[in-house]
Amino acid sequence: MSLAFLLFLAMLLDAVMGEPKWLWTTLPHPAVLMGRAVGYCDTRFNTGTQKRQNGILVLIGLVLAAGLLGYIISLFGGIVTVIVAAILLAQKSLAQHVGNVAQGLRMSLAEGRRQVAMIVGRDTRGMDQSAVTRGAIESGAENLSDGVIAPAFWFLIGGLPGLLIYKIVNTADSMIGYRTERHEEFGWAAARFDDLLNWIPARLTAVLIALPAGVIGQMKLIRQDAKLHRSPNAGWPESAMARALNVALSGPRSYDGTLRDFPWIHANGNRSPDQTAIDAACAMLWKAWAVLLMVVFVIALF
């Protein structure tokens, strides 16, 4: 079976099964195992005066180990490959987590804040309804790229080895790829390699959002807004989602008690969206997923 056909089946399996709680309360999720591996390396090797070199060597080791593991698993055949790939895709769970924020807001602002705190890294205690809503939408757009489109893309390119390499790099970036005193040098390689691996998928995600939203003609504006984002990649799906929903995203927010004055993306959009905008964002996540599914099916046919 071709990689495209295997991916097609994996995407369908993930959409149906999602993240079954009964399984991951018994066994550790692969993402948890990857996190433990990165955490061990951080504790063990993030020392001394050669932190950048150590970080580069650690990343090479993690990439080689992930690629080898992916190759070994793929030897067990197509069914196992589909199951593992489905586990490492996150479409259904992403839509559920984002949708939970809308459900929380319908109960109370406090519950909305509690739900959005599970998917964003910014301070949530002082958020009003519109800030909670923007946070959920931004997280949904960015994680559509990181958690669905990019893994699918690298599976198409390199099968399970490609998928596992992407996931370990993305995990490393999320844990050590920060410009903090502890991680600026040690996590440098992980952050740069993650930027590289996400370059194409982030822009592909923007197209996949813009197509069903009918804003593909605004790609020039989407590109302009994407450049305003602090990330070289995350701005693309966020900018496309902002145009698709006609909401203003990004803007000022607080991290660790410090207000950060980030520029607005699609500044002329609605700056006071409510939970209905989150509902629309969840629908857009599934529409973008459906477009990708059709593309993968066509590739599988030919």
Results as ranks from 00 to 15, higher is better:
G61N: 06
I87Q: 10
R106V: 02
S108C: 05
I56W: 09
I87V: 15
V98H: 03
D123A: 15
V58Q: 07
L105I: 08
T124C: 15
R125G: 09
A102P: 02
A85S: 15
I60D: 02
S130F: 05
G126L: 13
I72C: 12
I79W: 06
Q53K: 14
I73G: 04
Y71Q: 12
M127E: 05
G78N: 12
Y71R: 14
G77D: 09
V120L: 09
L57E: 11
A65Y: 00
K92F: 08
L62D: 06
K92L: 15
I87E: 10
S93G: 04
V98D: 00
R113K: 15
L89F: 14
Q53D: 08
L75S: 09
H97E: 14
E111K: 13
L64Y: 05
I119V: 04
L57R: 15
L105V: 06
V80D: 05
I79E: 02
V98R: 02
R106Q: 10
I73L: 14
G61V: 04
V80R: 11
S108Y: 00
D128S: 12
Q115D: 07
G67N: 03
L89G: 13
A85C: 15
A110E: 14
D128F: 07
Y71A: 15
G99C: 09
L69V: 14
Q91V: 11
G78K: 10
A102S: 13
L59P: 06
I72L: 15
V101H: 02
R113P: 04
E111T: 14
G70W: 06
N54P: 03
L94Q: 01
I79L: 13
N100V: 03
L105T: 06
L62R: 07
N54I: 01
L75R: 01
L57G: 03
I119E: 01
L59G: 03
A86P: 10
Q103N: 12
G77Y: 05
N54D: 05
D128C: 11
A90F: 06
T81W: 04
N100K: 13
I79H: 03
M118G: 06
I119R: 01
G78V: 11
S93L: 12
R106N: 06
V63W: 03
G70K: 11
G112V: 04
N100Y: 07
G112K: 06
L62K: 08
L69T: 15
